[in-house]
Design a protein around this nucleic acid. Sequence first.
DNA 1: CATGAATGAGTCTTCATTCAT
DNA 2: GATGAATGAAGACTCATTCAT
Lengths: 205, 205, 205, 205
Amino acid sequence: MNSRSAAAALISETGRGTKAAILNAALAAFGEKGFNGASTRDVAAGAGTSLSNLYNYFPSKSHLLAELLQRANDELLNRTSAAVQAAGDDPADRMREAVKAYVGFVVDHQTAALVAISEIRYLHGEHRERIVRARDSTQAIFGEIIAEGVAQGRFTTPYPDGAARNIVSMCSAISTWYRAGGRLSRKALAEQHARYALALLETRD
Amino acid sequence: MNSRSAAAALISETGRGTKAAILNAALAAFGEKGFNGASTRDVAAGAGTSLSNLYNYFPSKSHLLAELLQRANDELLNRTSAAVQAAGDDPADRMREAVKAYVGFVVDHQTAALVAISEIRYLHGEHRERIVRARDSTQAIFGEIIAEGVAQGRFTTPYPDGAARNIVSMCSAISTWYRAGGRLSRKALAEQHARYALALLETRD
Amino acid sequence: MNSRSAAAALISETGRGTKAAILNAALAAFGEKGFNGASTRDVAAGAGTSLSNLYNYFPSKSHLLAELLQRANDELLNRTSAAVQAAGDDPADRMREAVKAYVGFVVDHQTAALVAISEIRYLHGEHRERIVRARDSTQAIFGEIIAEGVAQGRFTTPYPDGAARNIVSMCSAISTWYRAGGRLSRKALAEQHARYALALLETRD
Amino acid sequence: MNSRSAAAALISETGRGTKAAILNAALAAFGEKGFNGASTRDVAAGAGTSLSNLYNYFPSKSHLLAELLQRANDELLNRTSAAVQAAGDDPADRMREAVKAYVGFVVDHQTAALVAISEIRYLHGEHRERIVRARDSTQAIFGEIIAEGVAQGRFTTPYPDGAARNIVSMCSAISTWYRAGGRLSRKALAEQHARYALALLETRD
DNA sequence: CATGAATGAGTCTTCATTCAT
DNA sequence: GATGAATGAAGACTCATTCAT
């Protein structure tokens, strides 16, 4: 499965072995059945280990989800901020690169992106707050670019305040329908959404 | 709670008494804990009836979800198509009204809108297909307006094909963050999103 | 089993049917294996019902223990205070009757008496406090008799303060070794311990 | 904690290092949660070693309990018989010293005393028999003194047969309520219980 | 319509113990 | 001696659902 292997990439960058296998299996299971629909047995079986051994690595099912979401949000934040920093000063350029980085992440780690938006509601307490913080940091990048662009007269939308949320929404929604090997290439998808974003902001040349 | 009472409105339009109470309780429960996180006991307790009596009205938990989603999607489809029909011929006007109708639905039935997008994945078989059909019909309205607008040169986006999905995405995502009594009024929210939609389509006067 | 039927008497005084069967099974299981050593499955099996049905009657294993101990302590308190009230004014007579009532309870409900002293440590919070209160009330009866007897010069022990605890200790310890049908009759056992108690208090004629 | 350090003394008299640490941790854990309520993980953690290393010292959890109880009963038997031997010929003196030795043990090793009476029921087979033997030996010392005293007309109780059990009961019950630093000193407690014992036996001068 | 009692399969998690290193 | 990884069985408890009344 494509999403599996992409996720594997996300996770095995930081570790191999049983722990990585468990994280990958959890990602697949949560992606397929949802956090509450997937059982710890599903996860253990998917990881090729025993149910009890899973608890040598993660103290609870929630910790599993938390670590998954933390990794996904960290990776997304890293990619997006790196892309923006590599872009020049022009807010439109910066926005374009931000969108392309975001879309790239969603395509590369589709299941992780899907789980990140749909299962975060099942985290509570500190776990949740930590992840929400990371997620908000990513959205803040878009917000800052928009503020700059508006200040410079580059973006002329009368509603700059809700724009970041909508742009991010559009990008992450890709995770809900995208199928690898479909009509649109990764690159085309990124270009398309960058264009939507700039249009939505009413960018003027 | 606002979402509760709004949801109640959605449901009691078509029924009073225990069945409506069950549907409302199910909506509240699924909205708060997700389909798999909410138990039939939660639902029965919320409806103020016995667990077993619930099965006199719905043969299974899935049927409950299906009926909920059917009603929500029907209402959304009705509102949207009515709004479009009431609008004139101009694709921009039609799009504006469609978006406003959609946003209005999300605000009026926030929990139902939220459950409709996040829990449909837990329906299977015929139930699912029926609901997906209704959902697609709604999106098709937007697609048709876009096609008209592009044909008439009113919308100049180079990517008309993905636009409907993104506009609908933006509108339904409101259900994930909107809080009644917040900064934006129902009307302002509708205006704003209508503007985003037209901008995204690169509408020209 | 003798302890079983005695316990049954304690419980069926207040109820018949599944709930009583569960309480009796719990008493037998906790008596035989201890609270932590007995499983809820043991209890359900002993009651001839399913594990899950047990939870229709008691919300948790702890509640089961709490109800058991409450009933035992209530019965013990009732018997003891009734016996004391029926006795005359003489502190020695009152003490004698109190001890005989206590011993009678231990013999009649040996398992309940055993569980009451050995498993109360596994109750926590409010459950525990409620039971401790009942237990202390019983001991207080002995304490008051001792205080009267000392005031009247009937009991001459130089250590009246610890005496109640020790007398109660002796009585309840019977539950740890008594076997029905043994050398001592119920009545002889009661006489014997009454004599021990009066001797310990250094009663003078 | 006093009981901890006292227990430590009991154990480290015969061993230092990891094995003693494990025994001490087991004593603390069994004392706090009971044999079935404490896990081998609790014990290992309390001893500051790994769970698997515990099995290098004790082949099973039961062996741990058995060794604990053996040591406790041995120490109690040694103290008691030594005290009796050091006492003169008078049965009353001998009884007084026996009780004082017993009470002294309970105070010095409160947790061990508590575990010895409350957890022996979780031992089976040979383990149990060995410990029961030691325990009975201790009680037999009291029984013999009583027999002597009765023969000499020093003890006039009409029920000499159950007296040893009750005296021992009273002494060991101290472990269930005593708190170091409380109202009664170790010495006062011993005197008090010696007096109770002699009174119970109806000792005459 | 409505209910209380019942159940078998399943939930997450912990258990005592083993084994390769 | 010491450890981290592993496991099968069992722990308490909840699930969606059924049935007799």
